[in-house]
């Protein structure tokens, strides 16, 4: 049976690129445990959104669904107007191939809690790996951009250091440079400072603050309420797989409307 492709049907695969993330009733379960119970969210281009909430609230899982490190069990996500994980033709959703999923992921940078730098590559090699191997950039060109990125995160002198020789804060800054080297349209941060010694948190948040100033769209799962208040446009509070409250950063953090948000924020400040 041939599927008739009308112009309207073709357009269904290319929605406007702004908002850059649209999540509609996103559901995810691990076995019998439903960790996302229908998340609806829109993130406009250039916004810095912080997601806060107690551990186990599903905020990291939701972040990982956006770049398909987790498969969603219900609902849908669009990134830059493109449906994540599926191609839509008429009334059918065709699951994408590995190569197509890989292509979708290229546009989304991710920074992990535990850095996940490649230990067998130097800082510079970590940064050029994606551009050269995935985007097909010329090594010389990628190297030049990587050095500029290292300078931007304040690590120009560490280009030839292996990750094992860098502090946690330095590793995380290299990881941010690695994500930026792919020229992403969206950056995801999964608790980027949670694995750091307290005195190293500031240097990473500083780099992220600079980044927010450049108009990069960022979704940050974090426990750093100070950073959320100061840098983000909006703050979302998640609890037990639900988006409980979302709004202007200062308003949510200073004057939350929901009882659960209030309880969480006062517990963190205690």
């Amino acid at each position: 049976m041939a599927i008739r492709t009308t112009p309207a049907a073709a357009d269904q695969n290319m929605l406007p690129a702004d908002p850059i993330v649209v999540a509609a009733d996103v559901r995810k379960r691990f076995g019998s445990n439903e960790v996302l119970k229908g998340i609806d969210l829109r993130v406009p281009k250039g916004e810095v959104l912080c997601i806060i909430g107690p551990s186990g609230s599903g905020k990291s899982t939701f972040l990982r669904c956006i770049n398909q490190l987790e498969r969603i069990d219900g609902g849908a996500i669009w990134v830059a107007g493109e449906l994540v994980g599926y191609r839509r033709e008429g009334n059918f959703l065709y699951e994408l191939t590995d190569a197509e999923i890989a292509r979708q992921r290229r546009r989304i940078g991710m920074v992990f809690q535990r850095f996940n730098l490649f230990p067998h590559l130097t800082a510079l090699e970590n940064i050029i790996e994606g551009p050269v191997q995935v985007l097909g950039e010329k090594p010389a060109e990628a190297r030049e951009r990587a050095e500029a990125l290292l300078a931007r995160v304040g690590l120009a002198d560490k280009r030839d250091a292996y990750p094992a020789h860098l502090s946690g804060g330095q590793q995380q800054r290299v990881a941010i440079a690695r994500a930026l080297a792919m020229r992403p349209e969206l950056l995801l941060f999964d608790e980027p400072t949670s694995a750091l010694d307290p005195e190293l948190v500031g240097e990473v948040l500083g780099v992220m603050r600079d980044l927010a100033g450049t108009g990069m769209t960022m979704i940050v799962v974090t426990h750093e309420l100070g950073f959320a208040r100061e840098v983000s446009n909006r703050v979302a509070f998640m609890d037990q797989g639900q988006l409980v409250e979302i709004g202007d950063a200062r308003q949510v953090l200073s004057d939350p409307q929901q009882a659960r948000t209030r309880a969480f924020i006062s517990a963190v400040h205690k």
Binding site: F112, E129, M182
Partner: peptide
């Protein structure tokens, strides 16, 4: 995960 995230 880091390799997948780069689109490999």
């Amino acid at each position: 995960e880091a390799a997948q995230t780069l689109g490999m």
